[in-house]
Every structure is written in C-alpha cells, then in structure tokens.
Design a protein around this nucleic acid. Sequence first.
DNA 1: TTGTATGCGTTATCAT
DNA 2: ATGATAACGCATACAA
Lengths: 344, 344
Amino acid sequence: MARARESVTMNDVARAAGVSLKTVSNVVNGYRYLRPETKARVEAAIESLGYRVNVTARNLRQGRTGLIKLVVPELRIPYFAELADSVVEVADRRGLVVLLEQHRYDRERELAVLRADGGQQVDGVLFSPVYVGQDDVERFDVDFPLVLLGESVFGAPCDHVSMRNVEGARAQVEHMVALGRRRIALIGLNESPRVSSATLRYKGATAALADAGMPVDPDLVEGPGPWLRPTGARLMDRILDRGARPDAVVCFNDALALGAMHQLIKRGVKVPDDIAVIGFDNVEDAEYAQPTLSSIDPGRDQIATLAVDMLCERMGLVAGFAPETAVREIFADFRLMARESTGA
Amino acid sequence: MARARESVTMNDVARAAGVSLKTVSNVVNGYRYLRPETKARVEAAIESLGYRVNVTARNLRQGRTGLIKLVVPELRIPYFAELADSVVEVADRRGLVVLLEQHRYDRERELAVLRADGGQQVDGVLFSPVYVGQDDVERFDVDFPLVLLGESVFGAPCDHVSMRNVEGARAQVEHMVALGRRRIALIGLNESPRVSSATLRYKGATAALADAGMPVDPDLVEGPGPWLRPTGARLMDRILDRGARPDAVVCFNDALALGAMHQLIKRGVKVPDDIAVIGFDNVEDAEYAQPTLSSIDPGRDQIATLAVDMLCERMGLVAGFAPETAVREIFADFRLMARESTGA
DNA sequence: TTGTATGCGTTATCAT
DNA sequence: ATGATAACGCATACAA
C-alpha cells in the first residue's frame, strides 16, 4: 500500500555515508572522478535509506523540467492517438516526457495554450489547434518554445510541421483518374473560408479534376459535418439519394471514407467495381477495413519526429543550433496507399 | 518566434509595484484580504513585466506537482487511446495534468514504473501492466500513490480498478445462446497460465457454455496471438479451414472480432445469418463496422473516473479520506451492446 | 577527488 | 493588510 511519501534528502544520504552533499550529488549524477570506495559507500547509503532524487528541486535549480506538452483536439480520434503514440515515442528517445492536453475544439482552451496559462511547467509545447486560425497569427508569437502542428494556421511566427494536404488530395483524384474513373465525388467539403485540412484538400482535389478536364460537378460534392464515420455515411447517402451516379468517391479523411464505404456496401453497391473509394490519413483501420481502404499516408511518424526535433532545437537542447534561426515551415512526405477499395 | 525565456520573478514584480514579495504572492494566489489599490498596482506590474508564476518553484515549495502519470502499453491501441482520453478528461476536472508513458509490452519498462525510475516528478501513477503479473505482486508495494488498471495482477497491495471480464465473457456467450446458437466458437484464447483478460474471458465464456449444456469443442477454440485484426482473421480462417462449422463466434476483443468478421465476409459467409459475431471492449469502431459489431462495453469512462478518484484519495487530495484505508479492488459495470453482427 | 557556500523562485511562518 | 525571513532539495562555482 502507498506509504506516506518519505523525504530522504541528499543531506540525509550525505550524513549517513559520512560525506558531503556534493559527493552524493556527484554519485547520483554519474560524475566520473570518484574514489570507488566513496562511491560504494554513498550508493549503500542511498540504497538503505531508500533515497530518490527530487526531480522538482533539480528542475528548479536547472531551470528546465524535461517535460514537453502535446495539445491535441482529442485522443479518441485515431489520427491524434497515433500521432500522440509517435510523439511519446520520439520524445522518449530524446529523454523527454510528454504531458497530454485535449482542447476538444474549444477556442478558449486553445487560446489558453498560447497564453501559457496553467503555468510554465514544461520546456516546450507541440500544439495542434483547430479554431485558433489565420486571424490569430500574431498570437503565436509566444515566449516559450512552440511548434505548431496541422493546417489551421500558416505563416505563424513559430516553427510549424504539417502535411501535404494539397498534394495528397491531388494524388487521391489522380489515382482515380488513372483507374479510368470519370465521375469523381468529393466528400468532406467545408463551407468555412478558414484554412483547414478541408479547404486544402478541396483545393488539391479540384485542381486535379481540372487538370483531368473534369469540372467539379456540384451534385458530386458533399459536406459539411464532423469528419467521422456517421457523417461519411450520411453524405454518401445524400449523393446517391439525389440520383447522382459517381464511379469514385474521394473522401477527405479515412473516417469519412469508412462511413461512406459502409453505406455503399449496405446499399448493395460494389466497392471498388461500381464505385472506388479512397480516404486520407492512413489510420490503422484503413488496412483492416472490408474491403481494405486506399488512403494517403501523411507521414505521421515523420511529423512526430520533425516536430519533436524542432522543439528540441528551440529548447536549446541541440548543440549546433543557432537560436536566432528563422521560423521554419516543414511539410512531411506523403504516400499513396493503394488498397482493395480502389481495386488494388 | 520563441524569444529567450525571460525570468521575471516575484521579486521583480514586488520591486516594480513597490510592495513586498509576499504581497505579490498574495495577489497571485488570490488572497482575499488585500487593499484593492494594492492589488491593482501589483496586477499592473505583473501585466507590464509579463510575469508568470514559476510552477516548478511552487511545486518544490509545496511538495506536489499536480501531475499524474498514466502508463499504458501503447496509444495506438484504440482501447488505450480511449482510456487515455477519459483519464485526461477526468484528471483535468480534478485540476490534474496527465503525463503519458508507453511501456510497449517491455517487462523491464514495466518494472521501472514500479521502481519509480526517472524520478518522482508526479504525485501519483495509473499503471496498466501486461508482463508484470501475479508473480510480481509484492512489487506493487510502492511508496507512492499508485492505482493499478487491468487484469494482469489481482490481490496486489495497491488500489485496483478493472473490468468484469468473467461476467462480460459470460454475457457474450449467453447472448449467443439466447439467439439459439449452438456451435459457439471462441477466439482469443491464450495458452499462458498468467492471469490476463484472455484467461478471465475464457473462464467466463466456458462457464456459460457449460451452463448451457454445451461442452467446449476444441475445434471451435482458437488462439493465441496478439489481439489485433490480422490475428482475428487468421484464427477465423483456421477454424473454417479445418471444417468446423460454427454458427457463432465469440471474440475476446473487438479487434479480433473485426478481423474475424472481415474474413467471414470475404469468404462469403453471411453475418449474422450464418454466423453471428460478438466482440469485447466496445471501441468506437464497433459501432461503425459493417455490419455494426455487437460488443461488451467494459465501462471505460467509469474505469477512468474511479481510477483518478482513488488516486486523488491516495494523494491526499480528498478531505474525508483516511490514508490508512485498506487497499480496494473495484470492478466497473459492463453492458452488452447488441448490434447487427448478432442480429440486432 | 571532495567539501563549502550560495541561490533557483516560491510559499509559509511569524511578526507588525 | 503587509513585510522580513526562512525553508523546499538540489546543482554548481569555487575552494581545498
């Protein structure tokens, strides 16, 4: 059972071992120039007293905590769960621990992140905003290491890692075109002018359609709605119910695609024979759907690695890095994952 | 861009406002007996200097951090992502922040959690072990607040929240029996004698079979393997390939069930007409699968709430709680979610 | 190779 | 209602 938290300090250890506090500190921190016998004595004292270093005190003294914060909308969304998984993994390799926060699409909570409310107990922040957008660019000029994730803002005064939304969506459509599909539906459109995955993917998709000589058919475009499976199912229904007859459906994320595909199969439509379907994000589910879902892999691991690495640089953890280095905007590489839903 | 981290201290504010350090502290902490004019002066100074309290120093002084750690196998597993989502949510309501760690089924990393390696920078720990099991019971006698999650250990000397595995699995089988199914396959069996979700669910399922007068048919039982979709697909294949003809498949988690269902459909078997399928965990996917997957809802939100609340008590955050309270073992309530895969 | 002394930025105890 | 001062536990000049 949890006993009361003891408070054995370095001083106690020092006294027990008959050495000074500094020597104990040296042992704890693996200082090399120690007489083996001294070291052994100190270690014995540490063991017998059950001493453990007080990280908080060390943090105060050193002016750093070894903690970074990751702020995402919510973990139950597979994309963010998998992103968090990667971030925790990469951070661990860099000797950092991740503290998790969810803003749940609450603009106030998002703004609180930039105000560093709740105190500066972390050395840096990875932030994936949604409703703090292009109009709030100047708010990203904060006085702590910050790396922005996602596409809610571009040109903000802080480092930024995002995915190739435009190119990825273009690849979705081009894939369908290459398969000979001519009536390509788009699902996931968002009316808002705010820059977002939705607007960028729409832009890429329509550009590809135009290049293929197929103007956008309003009957084949659907949105808005949260990018979840039920929405995909509903929007797919709307397209079919009004008599439109697509031979391909490009969805702006995998959840929409899985929902749409679900609905197609339910209505007896053959995927991919009658209608091919492709998603975006390449979440693990895509690989196990029935049929397996083609998708765009946005390079999640690479995003996590780039983000953590850039944050480390801003945190002053990388030797050769010049703190005055200009703000960087990096895009991870994407890959088309062709699977059964497009005839692979 | 990230400017160098300033270090405006309370002292600076005090000087600027012409008051003592204590007064600034009072203002920051919302002390009530302050002359409004003093308070205003201090707040102005705080604002103009851009002062923000140093949480690390506060933590050191107060002997607590407001941080709890959640250790799970990995976030990419939907069950744990959803659990983490709930834990972060509940912790936030209790004024706590969650620090995340993944052990990735590495026994050494699991043991490190109990040794409190990496320092005591958190006030408490929620731990979901896998390979630290019944043989390691005594290792859970740690000197920091700890709440155990899951079923790898029972009777450990610390608080514990888990789900009703036995009863849930029993409900799975009883549901099939009630539907008139007589040849019920079980998928997810694990040979290991170690107590785990696998052994408990197997126990519940076989007990229910016995009660229904149906002895376990070895041809209808499959395992082992990681509880992921590919495993479910593979094990389903094995059962069908050896000529067994089940009319129901009880899977020990949703991933196995989704994989098995995938395979059934691929082979042209009708779900639920020919074979009914049920999973366990009720992850979000179950609701959107094609057909929608029946499952056992293990009460994830309740688990998160109970776990955080018990941890708060052990952390001394709950007024009426006696620290010497004996270790508690709590089970969350489960619910059968009947969906299309069992004919709902 | 080890010890001494100081301060990191707070909060808390006592005064006043 | 506010101020002076002492911890909190550690790391690090600097000394020895």
